[in-house]
Design a protein around this nucleic acid. Structure first.
Lengths: 220, 220, 220, 220
DNA sequence: TATGAATGAGCTTTCATTCAT
DNA sequence: AATGAATGAAAGCTCATTCAT
C-alpha cells in the first residue's frame, strides 16, 4: 500500500549517479573547466550550453564549478584570452622580423592556420560568441582583435611599399580576405582530415600569393 | 513644493511609451518580423534575443508575433531560407554558363560578395546560428550548404582540368579559402564604407586569381 | 533578390483557409456552439480545449463565437444546464408517480441510463468539469445535483419503508451505488456497441434489484 | 534621520514570508510533491493547477519542484502509477485464489473500495485526467486499466459458469456496473463520514450480490 | 572542495478576451 | 455577423547563481 512507485523516466538525480561511473574524474581546475567548456560551447553555442552540462561532462555538479570560476562569462573570457595569448606574440615576432614581405606573409598565414587548426573550438568561439562579452573586456578584445588584423595588414602594406605586392589591391581588403580565408577553417576543418594544417597553410599561401590563374593564361 | 519624486525604478513602462512615439508602426507581417529579427539576431545572437525584444523593436507585444509566426525557430528558418533562396539559383546559372572558368570564378565571387553584403545580417546568422536548427530542416540546410560549396568547387576543378588554374592547389581547399574570404565580409562589412560590394568583389577576384605577389618577384 | 520565402510549415492562417473548404458552414448559433464544444470538451477536457479549436471545428474564427456567447465559461454553463434540464423533470415525474418502488426504480434507472447514453459528451463533462464552475452557478449546480440524487434516494427509502427493499442497505449508499453504476457509462459507453441503452438499463436494474447471486445458492 | 523609505512595490515577497510561517516546511521530495499535487489536482483539476500553486502549497518556489521532478506530466504519471501499483497485485491474488466466486467478488469489491477510499484524490485523478497523458504511457495505462477490469469480469464469468451467478446479466456490463459503483466513491466519499470503507464495501457487496429487492417480493 | 537544494529572473508559448473594420 | 489583429496575463520550464552542510 505504501510501495514506492518508480517511473521509467530516468530522474535527474539518477542520471548523475549513472554518469559518475565512467568519468575519469580528473582533478578539477580552471584549465580543465575551460577546456571542456570550449568543446561544448563550440559544438552547441555559448548560450545553449548550461553549467549543468559542463558539470556533467566533468563528472561534477555545477556548484563545484564556482569554486574555480567566478561565473559563466568568466569561462568565455578565459577562452578569448587563450586565443589572443597564443596568437598575438608569434605574429608580432613575424611582423617585426627582418624578412621579405612574401616570407612574412607565408609565415603569418602558417601561424594563423596553425592556431586556428589546433585550437579549433576556441577559435570557433572567438569569432562566434563575441556578442556575449560585455563591458570593458568586450572593448579590450575588440581592440586587440583589431591590432592583430593591423599586424597582418602592415605586412601587406610593406609588400606594396617595397614593390613586391600588387598595389592594385587595397591592403585592408586583402588582409580581410586572407584572414577570412584562414578563420573560415573553424567552419570546416576537422583534425585528421586529408591535409595537415601545414599543407592547408601552404595551399592558402599559394592562393594568396599567386592566385589560381596560371600566369601564361594570357588570353583570359 | 509638491515636487514629484522620481525613483530609479527602471522605467520600463516609460521606455515603452517613449518608444512608441518614434516607431514607424509598420504593418506587422511575417516579413517585417523576420527583417527586424534578423538585425537583432545578427547583433545580439539568436539565443540572446528574446521575443520580447523583437516585439519591442516592432512596437507590439510579443504575443502579437505569434499571430504571424509559429514560433521563434520559424523566424530562424525563414532567415536561412532567404539566404539560400537568393544565393543558389544565380550561382547555379553561373556554374552552368558557357564561360571560361576564370570568368565564372569572377562572377561567382561577385555574386557571393553581393549577397553577403546585401543581406549582411542574414548572412551572419546563416553561418553562426546553424546550431540552433533542429531536425530535418537542419539536415536540409546542411545539404544545400554543401551543394552550394560544391558548385563553387566545380568551377575551380574545371579551371584545373582546362589547364587555366594551378593544379598544385587542392580545389576543395581553394574553394574553402575563397568562400571564407567572402563570407568573412559579415564580420567587417558595413554598408556605406570606403568600397562598394562591387569593388570589394573585384579585389577579391584579383586576390583569388592572381594573388598578391607580383609575377616578376622572381627571387621569392 | 526579393523573392518571397515560403516554409513548408503550414502557417496559422493557411490552416484556416484549407479547413474552410470542407466545413458544411452551418448557421452559427449558441446551440451549435454548445454542441460542438461538448464533443471537444468531452474528448480533450475543458481546459485543454481552446476557443480557437471550437472555432476551427465550426469553420469560423474564435472572435465570431463571442457574438453568440459571453465567454468560455458560459458554454460550460449551458452544457450543465442542458444536462439538468433533460434529467430533472422526468425523474421528478417518476418519483411522484403512483407506482410500486421497484417499478419506480426500474424506470429511474432506465431514464438515467437513457440520458447518460444519448447525451454522452454532456454527461461526461457534467461529472468531470464541475471544478471549472465558479460562484453562485457552481453552488446552484451542486444543489440541483444533490436534489437529483435525493429523488433517487427517496425511491429507495420508500421501498424500504414499504417493506419491499432490503432494510440492511443504507439508502444513501445504495443510491450512490446505483447512480455510480449508471454514471460510469460515460467512461465506457459508445453508441452502436453490443447493447442498446435500453438493454443496459435492464441489466443494471436486474443487478440493482436482484443482484448477481442466484437465490438458491444457499450454501454460499 | 536616515530612515529607510519603504515603497508599496507589490508586496509579493511579504506575502511569501507570511505564508512561510504557517507552512510545516516538510522536506521536499518527489513523494511529497506528488502527495500535495494529488490533492490540488483532485480539487481543482490537473490543467487548472499551476506549478506555482503546488510550490506555494509546499512553501517553495516552483523552480524548486524541478529539482525533484522532470515536468508537470511526470507528477501525473506518478499518480497514475501509484493507483495501479496499489490496485493490481491484490486483485490478481483474489482472482487467482481458490475461493467460491461470491467470496471472490466480495473481496474484490472490498479491495477496490478500500483503494478508492484510501487514495481518494489519486483515484479521482485516475479516472478524470487520463486525457492529459500522452504517448506510450497513455497506452500503457489504458491497457492496464483494461486488464484490471478484465480480472473483475473474469470473476463474474466464473460465477456464471459455475452456476452461482445469474446468467441473464452480461458479465461485461455487470462488471462495468460494479466498478462504476465503486469508482463513484471518489465523487462523494469523505474520510470520517458516517460509514467506514469496510461498511461501504459491505453494502456494495450486498447490493451487487443480492440486490435491493426482497426475495419474497414475488409480485414484482 | 564538492554536493544538494533552492531561488529568482527570464524565456517561449498559449489563450481568453477585445475591438476596429 | 464575422474577421484579423492585438493585448495581457498566465503558464511551464530553464538556468545562472547562491549557500548551508
Amino acid at each position: 500500500m505504501s510501495q514506492k512507485v518508480r517511473l521509467e523516466t530516468t530522474s535527474k538525480s539518477n542520471r548523475k549517479v549513472e554518469n559518475k561511473v565512467d568519468k575519469p574524474r580528473i582533478r578539477l581546475s580552471q584549465q580543465v573547466i575551460v577546456a571542456t567548456a570550449s568543446d561544448l560551447f563550440a559544438r552547441n553555442g555559448f548560450g545553449a550550453t548550461s553549467l549543468d552540462a559542463i558539470g556533467e561532462a566533468l563528472g561534477v555538479t555545477k556548484g563545484a564549478l564556482y569554486y574555480h570560476i567566478k561565473n559563466k562569462e568568466e569561462i568565455l573570457k578565459l577562452i578569448f584570452m587563450t586565443v589572443l595569448t597564443v596568437s598575438e606574440e608569434p605574429l608580432r615576432q613575424i611582423a617585426q622580423a627582418e624578412l621579405p614581405p612574401a616570407e612574412k606573409l607565408r609565415r603569418a598565414i602558417a601561424h594563423h592556420v596553425a592556431v586556428a587548426a589546433d585550437r579549433s573550438p576556441a577559435m570557433t568561439i572567438f569569432y562566434r560568441e563575441d556578442v556575449h562579452l560585455t563591458g570593458p573586456f568586450a572593448r579590450e578584445i575588440a581592440a586587440r582583435k583589431k591590432a592583430y588584423e593591423r599586424l597582418f595588414e602592415k605586412i601587406v602594406e610593406e609588400g606594396i611599399t617595397l614593390g613586391v605586392f600588387h598595389k592594385e589591391i587595397d591592403p585592408k581588403i586583402a588582409t580581410f580576405g586572407i584572414l577570412g580565408m584562414c578563420n573560415w577553417l573553424s567552419q570546416w576543418y576537422r583534425p585528421g582530415g586529408t591535409y595537415t594544417p601545414q599543407q592547408i597553410a601552404a595551399f592558402f599561401n599559394q592562393l594568396a600569393s599567386f592566385g589560381l590563374a596560371l600566369p601564361d593564361a594570357s588570353s583570359l
